[in-house]
């Protein structure tokens, strides 16, 4: 009886939401005239990024420069999630006996494959976040790829341990780099996260001012945090 009522309620809600989405014309040009006097936000980004910011990838310019405060907020959310997981789940080793990550050794294919693949995956991740302002990609994507490489090593080898001390240093230093680059903008340009785009020319590695440096810091921070979270999760003793 309850299931029937819930399904009816969902149908009503679905009807109203579908009514809203049907009226949006997909596939047409809804940005408007990008050279008008007062364009929409999307039109302004499209027409002005090449001259004013000198960054080839407009998405990176939007994420780091135009809406930089949102990116700072998201990096903070990831940091707080990692702190929260550590405070709820992490136990020091002196409290219990050794929690083992793997009860049986993994098969030979995984062990030999992981040893070869791990440097390649890490290199791909670092490439993605260093070239964030030229090709699609960026700090979050590259950091996640590096963390996936670490995960492969963590589930293949019993003896592979990550050094929590070193990871805490890298994480804090990367976060402080982001904020201090923002404060540099505050002191030099009088707005937080202001950019200095006169450095370099378009489409080369050294272009776009502070944008690639911020993205590299974000990439390191995301990689280290996700590896820490996965390490803590894998060490919980399974209940049998």
């Amino acid at each position: 009886m309850k299931k029937v009522l819930v399904i009816i309620l969902l149908v009503i809600i679905g009807y109203f939401l579908a009514n809203t989405f049907i009226n949006i014309p997909f596939g047409e040009n809804r940005i408007g005239d990008i050279n008008a006097e007062k364009p929409t936000a999307a039109g302004y980004y499209l027409s002005n990024t090449k001259e004013k910011s000198k960054v080839a990838n407009i998405i990176t310019a939007i994420v780091v420069n135009y809406r930089g405060l949102d990116t700072l907020g998201e990096v903070t959310v990831l940091f707080l999630a990692s702190t929260g997981i550590a405070s709820v789940l992490y136990r020091r080793k002196e409290e219990e006996e050794e929690t083992e990550r793997l009860s049986l050794p993994s098969s030979t294919i995984i062990r030999s494959g992981a040893r070869v693949l791990f440097p390649i995956i890490a290199l791909l991740g670092i490439y993605v976040f260093i070239h964030g302002h030229l090709t699609p990609g960026g700090g979050f994507q590259g950091g996640t790829i590096v963390a996936t490489g670490f995960l492969l090593m963590l589930i293949s080898y019993k003896g592979f341990n990550t050094n929590h001390n070193r990871m805490t240093w890298i994480e804090s230093l990367a976060g402080l780099t982001f904020i201090f680059l923002g404060i540099w903008g505050l002191i030099a340009d009088n707005t937080f996260l202001g950019n200095i785009p006169e450095v370099g020319k378009l489409n080369s590695l050294l272009s776009g001012g502070l944008i690639p440096i911020i993205y590299i810091a974000v990439g390191f921070k995301v990689a280290v945090e996700l590896t820490g979270i996965l390490d803590i999760l894998l060490k919980i003793k399974p209940k049998k």
């Binding site: 990838n57 699609p136 990609g137 960026g138 979050f140 994507q141 996640t144 996936t148 996700l226």
Partner: peptide
């Protein structure tokens, strides 16, 4: 939208 596709692939599939 290649940026969004790369983000969704890295986070949604693996992690």
């Amino acid at each position: 939208a290649p940026d969004v596709a790369l983000t969704e692939a890295a986070i949604g599939i693996a992690l």
